[in-house]
Structures are given as C-alpha cells and as structure tokens.
Design a protein around this nucleic acid. Sequence first.
DNA 1: GATGAATGAGCGTTCATTCAT
DNA 2: CATGAATGAACGCTCATTCAT
Lengths: 228, 228, 228, 228
Amino acid sequence: MSTFSEARNEPRWTRRKDARPEEITAAALELFVERGYAGTRLEDVAARAGVSKGTLYLYFANKAELFKAVVREGLVSPLSAVRELMGRHEGPMMELLRMVVYGWWERIGSTRISGIPKLVISEAGNFPEIAEFYLAEVVRPGTALIRAIVERGIASGEFRPLDSNEAVDLVFAPLMMIALWNHSLGAFEPRRADPRKLLDTHLDMLRRGLSAAPVQTGDAKDTGAPQS
Amino acid sequence: MSTFSEARNEPRWTRRKDARPEEITAAALELFVERGYAGTRLEDVAARAGVSKGTLYLYFANKAELFKAVVREGLVSPLSAVRELMGRHEGPMMELLRMVVYGWWERIGSTRISGIPKLVISEAGNFPEIAEFYLAEVVRPGTALIRAIVERGIASGEFRPLDSNEAVDLVFAPLMMIALWNHSLGAFEPRRADPRKLLDTHLDMLRRGLSAAPVQTGDAKDTGAPQS
Amino acid sequence: MSTFSEARNEPRWTRRKDARPEEITAAALELFVERGYAGTRLEDVAARAGVSKGTLYLYFANKAELFKAVVREGLVSPLSAVRELMGRHEGPMMELLRMVVYGWWERIGSTRISGIPKLVISEAGNFPEIAEFYLAEVVRPGTALIRAIVERGIASGEFRPLDSNEAVDLVFAPLMMIALWNHSLGAFEPRRADPRKLLDTHLDMLRRGLSAAPVQTGDAKDTGAPQS
Amino acid sequence: MSTFSEARNEPRWTRRKDARPEEITAAALELFVERGYAGTRLEDVAARAGVSKGTLYLYFANKAELFKAVVREGLVSPLSAVRELMGRHEGPMMELLRMVVYGWWERIGSTRISGIPKLVISEAGNFPEIAEFYLAEVVRPGTALIRAIVERGIASGEFRPLDSNEAVDLVFAPLMMIALWNHSLGAFEPRRADPRKLLDTHLDMLRRGLSAAPVQTGDAKDTGAPQS
DNA sequence: GATGAATGAGCGTTCATTCAT
DNA sequence: CATGAATGAACGCTCATTCAT
C-alpha cells in the first residue's frame, strides 16, 4: 500500500513455499540420524523445522517419501563434483585419490550429510526401495569412480596390479567408518583424534599399499604383485 | 583358523528349559539385524523362537532388555580369546595381526554375530546404555588389544612409528565395512567378492603400510616415518 | 409435461458474482450425493466449482452450513408448483396423480435434485436440523398434497375408501426408490429399465389399486373396501 | 483348583473368542446406522461392545472389513430362508408374496438389520467394493426370488402379463421405504402408522394390481393387459 | 473479494505389555 | 511355566478452518 513497502527485501511474511522443503529435510536429516527412521516422530520434525505437522504433508506425501527426499537431497551434487574433478585431472592417480578423499571430508564427512550412510545401513532392511535407490544412485556410481582411478593407476604403472574392486573397498572403508562413528558411538567417546589426521594416515598407507614399487617386509617377499 | 574355539567348555546340549532364553535371543538377533530395533515386532520374535508372546516376558523384562541381552550375548567371549592368543604369541606382529583378522572372520565376520555392530551403530542414539556398554566392553578393549600389537611391532622395529590409534582404526575399518555391508545393502547386491579375499588384500596392504621398510613411490619420498 | 415450469420468472443469466454461491452449491450437491457428507472434501468442492478453498468460506460459514444450503436449495419451489397445479385441476384425481408423478420425474427424478433424498436419509441422524427442516418443508407438505388428492378421490367416489396416509406412502415409495437407486447402487448396475416405464406401470397399478370398482381375484372376494 | 470350580457353567472370565465378533458387529451395526460409516468412531464401537479399541483389530483387519462383516452377517440367513420357503410353497403366488412380505417384516423390517440398506445406499459411492458385494449377494438374489414368484404367477394365469422386473421393484419399494424411514426421518416423526398395516394395504394393492382379472376404472378401459 | 499456505484437532491403526487361565 | 486374548498409549495422516497477502 505504501510506497515504502516496495523497497522491502526481507518481507516478514513471505510465503516460503520454495524454502520450506529444504528446511524440512534439514530437520528430518538431523532427527533421522539421531533417532533412526521409526524413532523419529513427524511432530518433532515439524517442530524442529518450525512448522506444524500438517505442513509436512504439503511437501511430502508421507514419512517414507520424506525419508527418500532426505537421502536423495544429500547426495546429488557431491558425486557429480567428484566426477568432474576426475575428468580434469592430470598427474599421478595417487594425487587424485588424495583430492577425492579431502573433497569427501569437505563436502560430506564434516557435514551432517555424513549421517546418511548410517541411515541407509540402518533402514535398508525395512526400505528395499531406499536400498535399491542408494545402490543405484550412490554406491555403484561412487565405486565406479574410484575403480576408474585405481585402474588408470594400474594401467600407467603407478599402482601395482591388484583387484580394483577390492582396492575400492579398502579406499572407502575408513571414510565410512569415520562417518558412522561420528553419528553413533562417537557421541559417547568425546576425545577423538582429528579425522583429517586419520585420513592423512589412510592416504599414506594407501600410497604404500598401492604402489608398484616392491616393499621388503619381515614376513614376506614383496614383488609388487598381489598375494595369492 | 580354529584358533579361537579352544576355550569353550560348556556342554553343547543342555536341557531345553535352560535353552529357551538363548533360542529367543537367537531369533531376536536375526530380526533386530534385519529390521532394526523399532522395526522388530516381539510377536515375530516369539513366532521365530517358537514360543508365545507372553513367554518372552518370562525371560526378559521388556523389549529394551531383550535387545540389550542380544547385544551383550554376542560379544563377551571372543575378546578374551584374542587376549589369550596374544599372550601366547611369539614371532612377528604382522603374523599376529593376520591371525586376529582371520579369527575375526571365523568367529564373528562370517557368523550372525556380525550383525551386532550394525545394531549398535543404528541404535546407539536411542540406547546410550548400549553405547556405553559396547564402548566399555568391546570397542575400548578391542582397540587396546590391536593397539598393543601395533605398539609391540613399533617397539621391535617391525613397524614404522605411526600413531597407534590411527593404525587401529585403519586395521578395523574394512572388517566393520564387511560386517555392515553384509547386514544391509549386501542383501540387495548379490554378486560380491569373497570377503576373505578382501581381507587378504587388506592384510597385504597393511603389511606394506605398516612396514618399517621405506617405500619409493611416485609422488613422495618415503622414509618409513609417517607423514607430516 | 411442462406443467411445472411456468412459474419461473428470474433472469436466467445474472452476473457471475451473484452466481458464485450457486456454482458452489451445485458442485457440492454432486459431491455430497456421490460421497456422502463426511466423504466429501471441501477441497474437492472448491475444485469442482472452480474456486479456491478459502472462497467457500466467503459464502458459507462452514461445511454444515454449506450442506444445509445444498439441501435447502433443492427443495422449495417444486412443491409450490404442484400446489398451484392442484388448485387448477378439474377432472379425475387419477389424472392429477399421473401429472404429479410425471411432473416429479421431469423436475426432480430426472435431475440432480433427486440426490437430495439420499442425502437427507443418510445424514438425518447427524443433522437433526436438516431432518426437521426436510420434514417441515418437504415431507409434510408433500404428503399433505397427495393426501388431499387421494381424499378428494375418495370423497367423489372415484377411489375406494382406504387410509389416505397409507395410500400416500404407497404412491411415493417407487419414486423414492428410483431416486435412491440412481444415486447409489444404480451406478454399479448399468443395464436398468427406463424409470419412466416403471412409473407408468406404477400408475397403472395405482389405478387398479385405488379404484372404487371391485376386483375379482383368486384368493379374495374384493368388495372395493380395504382389507381389515 | 477346587472341585467346585468344575461345576461352573458361567465362568466369569471365559475367553470369549467366539462370541466377540458378533458382539462387535452388533455394536457396529447400531452405530453405523445411527451415524453413517465415516461418522462412526471405532472407539465408540469398541465402547458399545464393551471391549477396547485394540480388540477390534483382533477380529477385523480394519474399519472397512468390519463394515463388510456387518452387512454380510445381517443378510445371509434371511435370504436363504425365503428361498427355502419358496421351494416348498404350493397354492397361489399371491399367497407366497404375502408370506415373503410378512417374513421380511419379521426377520428384517422390524429388526435393526433393516438399517443395512440405508448404510449401503449411503456408502455405495465411497465403497465400490461394498456396493458390488451387496448387489451380488443381496440385491440380485433377492430380486431373482421375487421375479420367479411373479413369473410363476403370470405363467399360471394368476397374474396378468406385466414386466416382471418392474413388478419386482414395485413389490420391494414400500419395504425399502419403511426400512429407510425407520432409520432416518422416522426418528423425528413419532406418530406413525403401524408398518404392518401399511404392508397389508400394500399387499392388497398388489393383489389388485397384479390380478389377471380386468378392472373397470374411471379413466381407462382395463383389459387386464399392461399399458403400453 | 479471492487466494492457498498453514494449522492442529481428531481418528485409524499398531504393538509392547499385562494377566486370567 | 506357558499361553494368547485383551489393553491403551502412541503416532501417522487427513482435512475443516484460518488468515496474511
């Protein structure tokens, strides 16, 4: 009505139709991670998002859909960012692996998105749909990416010729462990080493473990080729 | 391989009456692992154990107590077996590490007990008591054991001097990953490599990663000392 | 056949604004008849009327008021038309009855107004106000009208002397049955006889049933007087 | 424990597993008829049946199944009773019709089962499944029965040759009207004629309407044949 | 006037727990 | 000891109603 109102940049009562879904999934992510799927009451999600119970249903058809949206949302851009990075990279694959691990920490490990793996692991049995979705959209593309790096390294002679599927699992395991720990027992064990230091050591171990150079150790002659 | 099984002395076929609680926890373990705590209905536990719903309450005060009993039961003995093994061991620590990893697979990884970690991780937030208990009874003793091995290896010059806490995490991570995978997404991804092969590769990577011998790799001069 | 339509004088195409309430009650009538009171969602009424949910509340205080308006609207005028017709009629009462029945079909039975009886019957228990209103405005005046016809016929010797209240019910029953059927099970039983043929047969049965002339039937001597 | 307890014929706490379903459907019938399907709260059904809300679900999977059970239960035996009666009958069909109408009043019209038609009419739109079920199990068998009677009468020359489908509707209409009235507006119009007298008059009208004998009425020559 | 996002009371349904037998 | 019918608190979801725009 007044000419002044036109200048407002932060109207107090904007219909927040577009911001709402993210506010809700953010609240839901926290609670799902804290309490599990079944343990999370939609009323609490609503309260934490600052809306009423009914509002949830304006944006998500039901609890399962909200859950799926939470999982989906947390994992779209991160993966494609890695993919892009890999396309551009030149130089040793070990260097790329390091960037991927650090990038994972920046974008996922150190954020609340890292709660999603725990969610999925916990609820896979009850939500086959989620399990399939996560496998198709996250696990398989993610492992394919790392496998490609490992295989490039093997092809170039940088890495020794080991089973690339196994290598992928060994690259991922500590990252998963960090994420799971931080969202479960970590809450009860306050003094913990800096995860970044652990990741550095992990990368250092990987460097040695993947290297094509032979390693002379106490109990076995290492030829650079994998065991049996 | 049969390293862990020597300590058991209990009669294998006690009277049915005494076996009831274990039949129940066995049924409960399966279901808790499959469906999580909240997703498991006591009626189904009863049905799978071949008893009536009411009978559950003759042995367990409530669902939470049953859950705790399931977790508690799956954990106690194996650790002491490892401790004993360690006391007896002579020779390279890498060899001991290998026995521990294989023993873990025999006694835990390949059995339904491997579902326990998933349970604990999933429900730690809802059952602080379980979390504390698991930390006190399993995590801290377990890591202490491995840390002792690593530190013995460092002291003897077999291993290079890295942070033993970090090393422990890196030793455990793939074992945890295998256990979690088998009880969650693994059910939806049929073709999977043999976990034992993965463990072999893991041990091979560890051997190289832990070795005191320097490793010449493409992007860094390795002196045997840990990074940074 | 067009007997009833003569009295209407209102302009047929008033301004849209004034038409709104009627568009809403028209939409509401359809839905209330299809789904019952509780089964009808105001959101659907709004959608069918082409307005927003909020707009409903500009015209009707709440769902119950809308419902009452729907019922009220479907009832008033036709009765006065019959009353008028009756005042003018000369000749046999059976002929008047026939006109009334045909008129009912024209103005009510074949239109969506015929859904009103179903609504009232279904919701009488929940809406005493509607029940009373319908009794006062429709049932009692309507039966009075028919009763007057029957009684005129009896007085003139055209009809035999039976209980006029009972006769009224027997005149109405098939009309009600047609209306109710068409708005309930009729939707699930596609092939159905033409209601007009049924009404003809009904009138034919009434003619015989009401006639003062004796009827010789197999199992009773008919004197024209009603049975005990 | 005591020898006395064996003599008890009315144990105070018998598990009433077999009586319960009928107690519940009886309570549900009352409430469904009073308040409609949606208007009936299961909590109230439970309370009226003297059980808890949860107990309902021991016997009926959900509200819709309870509803179907109510409908089913009220109309199985009555229909077969009529069928049986018809098989035995000898003599005029008009007599059989009279027995059917009286029987309907005894077994249905005067009992609370008469509330079912109203229920079905009200909810057919929301529960196609119920509508189909009622058509298949009640309406079609019931009309077939009456049609058979009418057609036998026509074949024997007792009735004039009219459309038997129409005749069936005209036979039923007043019965339906009585049932519906008693469960809707009837509650608000206390003084009402005895339905049995109305049924007598209805039968008397039918006798005249169906008779093969010609009837001389004021406005039409009646030849016994139906109108065009 | 008209909109539709937001609300929250209310109900159907589930399931851990109890207890008479 | 064992049973399983019964309970009722708790929660997901719906939808009539409100109100800032």
